[in-house]
């Protein structure tokens, strides 16, 4: 296993893993997990060190390649942190009436540096989830993938196994889901980008 780790831990794989880790930052920040510019790099380093030391979920090079394992390890760790933060961090809020855009506009100036207020985060979750649920009900393959996602099955292999979708059908349905990012409100995208800038 250590031999495979040394062999597959190439600059290209490190670049790919870091790019993956970077996409976890908006959610981490939204859940008030402390993050910095170095967080994506540190997430990758932690996952590699875990393999080397035999900590965490073991990597079997015969089951998947290093990049897939690193992405899975980063996903698991960040998900647990996000969920933990959301579970323990309850505080009272003055929930004024108003639509999501109004709430976002009101909350943003008050957000501390690099932070997303819980209201903004809740709005962000609601907006994205609502957008994903706009997938046509006739689109069976996309619907079953979303059902898998919302109960915690996200990897291609497990989703295909659970749904019986073939490779091509899965791939096209997943693409249709990811295309929904085009329809997310520009305001939401701007907030996430702004927060990322402020953390730089």
């Amino acid at each position: 296993m250590l031999h495979a780790l040394a062999e597959q831990n190439t600059p290209e794989v490190r670049k790919q893993a870091r790019r993956y880790a970077e996409q976890r930052i908006p959610l981490l920040r939204g859940a008030c997990v402390p993050v910095s510019k170095q967080t994506p790099r540190d997430l990758v380093d932690d996952a590699i060190t875990d393999i080397f030391l035999g900590d965490g979920d073991p990597w079997d090079p015969n089951q998947c390649d290093l990049l897939t394992h690193l992405r899975g390890a980063i996903l698991k760790r960040t998900w647990l942190e996000i969920r933990h933060r959301k579970l323990v961090r309850y505080s009272p809020f003055d929930l004024a009436e108003g639509d999501v855009e109004t709430v976002l506009a009101r909350e943003r100036p008050h957000a501390s540096r690099g932070d997303i207020s819980p209201i903004v985060f809740a709005s962000m979750i609601e907006l994205v989830a609502t957008e994903l649920r706009k997938i046509e009900t006739r689109d069976g393959p996309a619907q079953v993938i979303l059902e898998c996602w919302q109960v915690g099955f996200v990897e291609r292999r497990e989703v295909m196994l659970l749904t019986g979708l073939d490779d091509e059908t899965y791939k096209l349905a997943r693409e249709r889901i990811l295309l929904r990012k085009k329809y997310l409100p520009p305001r939401l995208v701007a907030i996430v980008e702004d927060l990322l800038d402020r953390s730089a």
Partner: peptide, 10 residues
């Protein structure tokens, strides 16, 4: 659901 969406964007 949103976590999975971001995972796949990643």
């Amino acid at each position: 659901l949103v976590d999975a969406f971001y995972h796949h964007l990643g």
